[in-house]
Amino acid sequence: MGKTKKLIELDNKTIEILEKQAKLQKRSLKNYIEYTLEDTAIRYSEPSEAYKKMMDDMIHRDDKGELKTYTWDEIKAQYGR
């Protein structure tokens, strides 16, 4: 995938906050901003075709009554928690 450079302007308070967060993650400010923006973009992107197909199958199985679901209490009881 190609890369594009963009110039952004942020106020000093924002930079200060982001620098603190970057240090907590042991990242440079530049790396932290790039990572955060890429992570956000991925969350906004459309699900993959494989995921959509899997979810359509799950919905179809649920509609036909073939899908067994468990409550959280049932799962905890089964594993002794």
Rank of each mutant, 00 (worst) to 15 (best):
G2D: 12
K3R: 14
T4R: 06
K5A: 13
K5R: 15
K5G: 11
I8G: 00
E9V: 14
L10T: 00
L10P: 02
L10W: 03
L10N: 01
N12F: 11
N12A: 15
T14D: 10
T14C: 10
I15E: 02
I15S: 01
E16P: 01
L18F: 09
L18T: 02
E19W: 04
K20V: 10
K20Q: 10
Q21P: 01
Q21I: 11
A22L: 00
A22F: 00
K23V: 06
K23T: 04
K23L: 11
L24N: 09
Q25E: 15
R27E: 05
R27Y: 07
S28M: 01
L29H: 02
L29M: 03
L29P: 01
K30Q: 08
N31V: 11
N31S: 15
N31D: 15
I33Y: 07
I33K: 03
I33E: 04
E34Q: 05
Y35K: 11
T36F: 02
T36P: 00
L37G: 07
L37C: 10
E38T: 14
D39I: 01
D39P: 00
D39C: 01
A41W: 07
A41R: 11
A41G: 08
I42G: 05
R43M: 06
Y44G: 09
E46H: 07
P47C: 00
S48P: 03
A50E: 10
Y51R: 13
K53R: 13
K53C: 04
M54I: 11
M54F: 14
M55N: 05
M55L: 11
D56N: 13
D56T: 03
M58D: 13
M58V: 15
M58W: 12
I59N: 00
I59E: 03
H60I: 11
R61I: 09
K64W: 08
K64R: 15
G65M: 05
G65E: 04
G65N: 04
L67N: 14
K68Q: 12
K68H: 12
K68R: 14
T69F: 12
T69I: 15
Y70S: 10
T71L: 05
W72Y: 10
W72S: 03
D73P: 00
D73N: 13
E74Y: 07
E74K: 06
I75N: 07
K76G: 02
K76T: 06
A77N: 13
A77S: 13
A77Y: 07
A77R: 13
Y79V: 06
R81H: 07
